[in-house]
Amino acid sequence: MKWTYRIKNKIIASVSLLSLCVLVLISNYIDRNHTENVKNTIGTLYEDRLIAEGYIFKMSNEVFRIKEVLQADWGKTVKTDKIGTLNTNISEKNAAYQKTKLTAAEKSKAAELTTTLNRFMDTEIDQAQQKLKAADEALAILNELSVIQLEESKQIMNQAEKLYLSGKNSSEFVFAIIIIILLVLQAMVFASKTLKPTNRNMPHNLN
């Protein structure tokens, strides 16, 4: 019944080869999918965190500069012009920051920041103490927003690391199965060789 064994081997070989092809395709899909996910995660880190942090840093810098102007021994007209320019810069940066992707905690703080900045910019230069107090409040809120950015960035990086490890483990698992299938096919090749009839020198019948 060697022919049944050979047919069985051919069926197993065909299924194994088909499985091998499917696994290669699955492995390729998993790799591309995880690569895209990691890419999107890194993109989120840049677009939603680093850019937002840049706006926060620039607003903080502008507020510090206004404090320096208020504390400088200049005339009121010079201070008004200088602070007016800085106020415009702050308003532009805040408007751009508000358009970034914000978490619930950030939205609450961002609204508080806008209110404080409006009060800060509406306060007359003659009311230096009140303006300086509003500036300190704005800086405190900006610092809290910066801390939130840092925490969110850490979470994004942790997510990216998990995605990377998940993709690595999946690829290793698929690779291990491919190796097993190749070993099975190799064993079948050796087994089929042992079943081949050997040529023997048959004695000639003498008449």
Score class of each variant (00 low, 15 high):
7 I>F: 15
12 I>T: 08
15 V>T: 13
15 V>W: 07
16 S>R: 01
22 V>S: 05
23 L>A: 05
30 I>R: 09
35 T>R: 15
35 T>K: 12
36 E>C: 01
42 I>N: 06
46 Y>H: 09
49 R>C: 02
50 L>Y: 11
53 E>I: 09
53 E>R: 14
54 G>T: 04
54 G>Q: 04
58 K>T: 11
59 M>I: 12
60 S>T: 10
61 N>A: 14
62 E>T: 06
62 E>I: 06
76 K>Q: 12
77 T>H: 10
77 T>I: 11
77 T>M: 12
84 G>S: 10
87 N>K: 06
90 I>K: 00
109 K>T: 05
110 A>W: 04
110 A>N: 15
111 A>H: 04
115 T>N: 07
128 A>H: 05
135 A>R: 01
138 A>Y: 02
142 L>Y: 03
143 N>D: 14
146 S>R: 10
154 K>F: 04
154 K>W: 00
155 Q>W: 02
159 Q>R: 10
161 E>I: 04
163 L>R: 05
164 Y>N: 06
164 Y>F: 12
166 S>W: 06
167 G>V: 00
170 S>C: 04
172 E>P: 08
181 I>Y: 02
190 F>P: 00
190 F>I: 11
191 A>Q: 06
192 S>C: 04
193 K>V: 08
198 T>W: 05
205 N>Y: 11
205 N>I: 13
